[in-house]
Every structure is written in C-alpha cells, then in structure tokens.
C-alpha cells in the first residue's frame, strides 16, 4: 500500500482508500477517484501538482491532497 503522492511516474495502481474531510471526499469522488478505480501516474515532480490518468480523464491534484489517497501499486490496467 502506498500513498498516491509516493507513486513514481508512469506507475499504475488501484485506489484502496480515500481519506480527508467530507468536502474533499465528495469532490474527489465526483471526479471519479473512488476505491477500486485504476489510476496511472503521468507526472510526479517535487513541488508540482500530480498528474494522474483515471477513467479516461487527465486529473491534476495537489500533492498534499494526494497523500490522502492510498493505492495498491502494480494492479489494474
């Protein structure tokens, strides 16, 4: 299990849990990042927002928020 923010560029995984306040969870769910959802990390550079690809969508996420999302690496498409 890894935090999304710790995933390397071009690595793939499946989201296992989403944490944080209800507002954040609601927002992240509505953009499609739910447990069981495969994600691909497109870009992960220091001090820059992460770029992840999931459900046909390129999503930019703040680093601090990404540490609230846990991922099982290597699984998924």
């Amino acid at each position: 299990m890894k935090k999304l923010s710790e995933m390397k560029k071009e690595s793939k995984g499946v989201i296992t849990s989403v944490n944080g306040d209800p507002r954040f969870i609601s927002r992240i769910t509505s953009i499609g990042l739910t447990p069981g959802c495969p994600v691909t990390v497109i870009k992960n550079e220091k001090n820059r927002p992460l770029l992840v690809y999931s459900r046909d969508t390129m999503i930019a996420l703040n680093r601090s928020e990404c540490s609230l999302i846990e991922v099982e690496e290597g699984k998924g498409a």
């Binding site: 953009i31 390129m58 930019a60 928020e65």
Partner: peptide, 8 residues
C-alpha cells in the same frame, strides 16, 4: 479555497 482537484 480548496486545493487543486481539476481535470485537463
């Protein structure tokens, strides 16, 4: 004022 969660 939440952090960035946006699609490209």
């Amino acid at each position: 004022r939440c952090g960035m969660i946006m699609e490209l």
